[in-house]
Design a binder for these strands. Structure first.
Lengths: 376, 376
DNA sequence: CAGGATAATTACACTGTGTAAATATGTGAT
DNA sequence: ATCACATATTTACACAGTGTAATTATCCTG
């Protein structure tokens, strides 16, 4: 999923195989038209080495349900989008209505690829709240029925689901390395419509990432009512919906303005103070979460990353009140990256590419699969 | 680590190998004197089948640091203890003093096994708070130096460390199946000196379990001071130290009475009410934790498991205030098992047996290793 | 003792690996 | 143009471990 390719030496190192084995495997993958190799001279003497990339001739479909809309995108394994369609999808939509809406859009996609003689090799869809034991608390749908229904709308195309924050985290991490130079295990925390995190484990495949529903941690007993029915949840204080009245902007305005929506404002001192208090609570909840699942680095995206750095210090203050052993920059590395608002379904497209590689009829333990995942 | 052995059919099924491969592997392991097989008739007709167990001729060492004491135990792979020594070890001990204490006890162990011509094949030690990024918050020692020092006190014996609650959870789960018939992924929560949990993942090896420092989740802003320096931590309300004044018993008395210490009391109604409130807070924190790491089942051990069932309902009430989607017995299975107080170092001994099997110079991916782990 | 049922073993073919030798492919000097 | 050198890739060989299916072993019942 790193989407930029690799040298043979790197593939051999990271997949724990010799270059002899990698050579055999790449020959096989080249015959199956899954990879491309470009020989290039990288030393003063010696034979040119091959830079291996995934084949561009493979087309995948990414589908996202976020920002009150359903987005479809067709593209290649590098993530280049060739087709995008977005339709409104209210969070209150019934499962039946949603399936109908999906089928219509899927028919449009099938028509678009049919005309061009393109075969979709893989589809992936990201859904907020997906993957929890006990069902999806945000879209309380019958996921088995949904998988069957959506599968029927895309006959012959393998369809995989994932949690939205997992797709977002993987997309930020691997497809936008600029500004995301974090390595090793870390927590990716996103404050948007929902407030959720994902544990990113570099050694694990993307589908082993765990979504963190931190937004429904109760951090104030008998506090503000939350959409989930409880009182005092972090999300009741820190979601975009919670702060939009504070900064005087509607949800729709935020979506329209996209990245940097905070820059377009002049937030008055009273509002900034309230936003600092909200960030303190975010830090308190973050410390509680890190007590349960300790990682040395946290990446925060969403509106807090657009706040002035002086204001973001409130997160550290909140952390200091809950994190076992206290907070210091030596013990926990805090980073902020700007959100990528309104780019759906790019994250899902990248996840579809990942799934194609992961599921490409290769035995999980084989060197071939390991090598291919290094290229991805 | 299930410590009871297995039939060949089960080994083949669980390790994804054919019985032919299992047969070859067991022949190898029998030649290395690692397993024993007992043929027994299990059907009316047909050949007797073999029940495979780990060899009893292998001796391991378990070491636990808990309950203000350091315990050593020598035994076999089944967990039968042949030698036990316990010495007082204050939580405020310096690393240097601890290393000296350890060396003395280790010399006693070496003498005991030397006289009997026994070779220790593996040692394991469980330490509260072990394994966290950023160091051990409970014993703020230099773990690298400690590993070197303790390794020198036990020359020639591989030594592995683990977190105390992980060793406890694995011990309860696999060595005392009576009263612990939970299957599948679950959270094991223990309220004792510390309040901690561990995610038990049946599909993963024991060393992939994750410790959950739920005790230091802040559930009451500006609440009771905790030993960790923060205010309002769960542990400040629910550790044994927090409740011993409520029930009028000292820590030492509790340790002496062992299991069933609550039965020996008649707790008055006012104290019971306070204990219910404390269990409510436990439930609130538990719900927060499960929002982050969703599992369908929770096992609670420690003093709450000794409370009347009517009082334990307060945990469900607390859960209902925080768990996303609310609490119901259909969505989350709550079980209680009695604590096993004062049996240290049995849990560490079992973990040593597990480590011996896991690390027995076998390639991680090999069928041989998979088969052996099924027997363990 | 023979037949039937079940478990364990083993011959055979296959797959994928690492090692090391062989081959290929470039640059720079002559 | 040729040769030496450096680096990358390929491939012959040996090895290890697997599944399949046939063979052998071991019990019980009549």
């Amino acid at each position: 999923m790193r989407s930029k390719g690799a040298f043979r030496t790197g593939i051999a190192r990271d997949s724990n195989l010799t270059e002899a084995s990698v050579s055999r495997i790449l020959n096989e993958l080249r015959r199956e038209n899954l990879v491309e190799e470009k020989r290039q001279q990288t030393s003063n003497a010696g034979a040119p080495t091959a830079f291996v990339t995934l084949s561009k001739d493979i087309t995948v479909l990414g589908i996202e349900l976020s920002n009150s809309r359903l987005s479809f995108g067709v593209g290649d394994l590098k993530g280049t989008l060739d087709y995008v369609e977005r339709v409104p999808a209210s969070p209150q939509l019934s499962q039946q209505d949603f399936e109908r809406l999906f089928a219509e859009s899927a028919a449009n996609v099938r028509e678009w690829v049919g005309v061009r003689g393109i075969t979709l090799r893989q589809a992936a869809m990201s859904v907020p709240g997906f993957g929890r034991e006990g069902g999806n608390p945000i879209y309380p749908w019958d996921m088995r029925r949904l998988a069957l229904s959506l599968g029927e709308a895309l006959p012959g195309v393998p369809l995989t689901f994932t949690n939205s924050v997992i797709a977002q985290a993987a997309f930020h991490r691997y497809s936008h390395p600029a500004g995301y130079d974090i390595s090793g295990d870390h927590l990716f925390l996103f404050a948007g419509h929902g407030v959720a995190g994902v544990i990113v484990n570099d050694a694990a495949p993307v589908d082993a990432f765990s979504a963190f529903e931190i937004g429904h941690m109760v951090i104030e007993r008998d506090g503000l009512p939350c959409r989930c029915g409880h009182k005092g949840c972090l999300e009741a204080y820190t979601s975009l919906r919670a702060i939009s009245p504070i900064i005087g902007l509607s949800d729709a305005d935020i979506l329209t303005k996209g990245d940097h929506f905070m820059e377009a404002l002049s937030v008055d001192p009273a509002a900034r103070e309230v936003l600092r208090e909200r960030q303190f609570l975010l830090g308190l909840a973050l410390g509680n979460a890190l007590n349960l699942h300790s990682v040395p680095k946290v990446v925060i995206s969403g509106w807090p990353s657009l706040m002035p750095e002086a204001d973001r210090a409130a997160i550290a203050h909140g952390l200091n009140q809950s994190l076992l052993g206290g907070y210091s920059p030596e013990r926990l590395e805090l980073s902020f990256i700007e959100p990528l608002i309104g780019n759906d379904p790019k994250a899902a497209l990248h996840y579809a590419a990942y799934c194609f590689v992961r599921d490409g009829a290769l035995d999980e333990k084989s060197g071939q699969r390991a090598a291919l995942e290094e290229i991805a």
